[in-house]
């Protein structure tokens, strides 16, 4: 095991302009917001963001003009409303977008983690998404070689980089996601490079005592960053709940056309 603990400025160098990037969490839970801020600070460009159901992490990266393309099953702020920067960027054709569906994108991430070129997925046939993805080259209707029935083949997803915020990690990269994992373990195992940000850096003894809590073992991981409150204002289970007021403030400023001001303050403030 090598010491992978680095400063955030060093870790962000693992991301190249134009990379496909997936981020941990869902909606307002365990998004790697602290690292997102570093991506913006570093001025990364033309990223291809991929996730099942992200939220503020994707929207603010779009607002900061770091994004070329987005592939999601859903991107919004639930009861608070639409993701305004995502919406505007798509409607003004500033970014490309590919709508996915949860069952396909999660299976594609798992296939990526399994080393499989594609996965067959039930459902979906008959919806308009099929044509969009056949054009894109991400899905294809095939015949089940055993029964002859039509079924959808979904190409595996192996992102260039996965950034996963976890509760605990050691300096070697052994990482523990507590509570809901979503697809984060598959994202890490399928990505070409993995960056872990962690609320706490623990001694390796912690994993020796509780090996079942090691959800992403060290050999998958390229960099570990100690980042308390690294998911804020989204939640980090067992550490903090989502700060709905802060998320509302972000949306209010987006509505008033002051998102640049929000980002500037957010970068200067550091949590």
């Amino acid at each position: 095991m090598q010491n992978r603990l680095v400063d955030v400025e060093k870790a962000v160098e693992l991301i190249n302009d134009g990379d496909s990037v997936t981020l941990s969490g869902v909606s307002m839970v365990r998004a790697p917001m602290g690292f997102v801020r570093e991506i913006i600070k570093a001025g990364k460009k033309d990223l291809y963001l991929i996730d099942r159901e992200p939220g503020m992490d994707f929207d603010i990266l779009i607002a900061a003009k770091a994004v070329k393309k987005v592939r999601v099953a859903m991107l919004g702020f639930e009861l608070f409303g639409l993701a305004l920067n995502f919406r505007r960027a798509v409607e003004n054709k500033e970014i490309e977008w590919l709508e996915d569906t949860c069952g396909a994108i999660t299976n594609a991430l798992r296939a990526g983690a399994s080393g499989m070129p594609f996965v067959v997925v039930k459902g979906i046939l008959g919806t308009d998404l099929v044509e969009i993805h056949e054009k894109e080259g991400t899905w294809k209707i095939i015949n089940d070689p055993f029964t002859g029935e039509k079924i959808l083949a979904v190409k595996a997803i192996n992102p260039d980089v996965a950034v996963i915020h976890v509760q605990k990690a050691d300096k070697y990269g052994n990482a523990s996601i507590e509570g809901s994992r979503f697809e984060d373990v598959y994202k890490a195992k399928g990505a070409k490079k993995v960056i872990i940000t962690a609320e706490e850096i623990v001694d390796t003894e912690y994993f020796m005592k509780y090996p079942e809590r090691n959800t992403i073992p060290y050999f998958y991981v390229d960099a570990v960053v100690h980042m308390p409150k690294g998911a804020y204002p989204t939640a980090c289970p067992n550490y903090y709940d989502p700060d709905y007021d802060e998320i509302r403030k972000y949306l209010a400023m987006c509505r008033e056309g002051k998102v640049d001001e929000y980002i500037k303050e957010w970068i200067e403030k550091e949590v």
Binding site: E53, V72, A73, A83, V90, E91, K93, G103, A104, L125
Partner: peptide, 21 residues
Amino acid sequence: DYYSPKVKLPGGAAAAYLTPI
């Protein structure tokens, strides 16, 4: 139209996958 939408909605989430099964 999908390629030049008037309004981009949040997205279908699990709809395409689950509704048929």
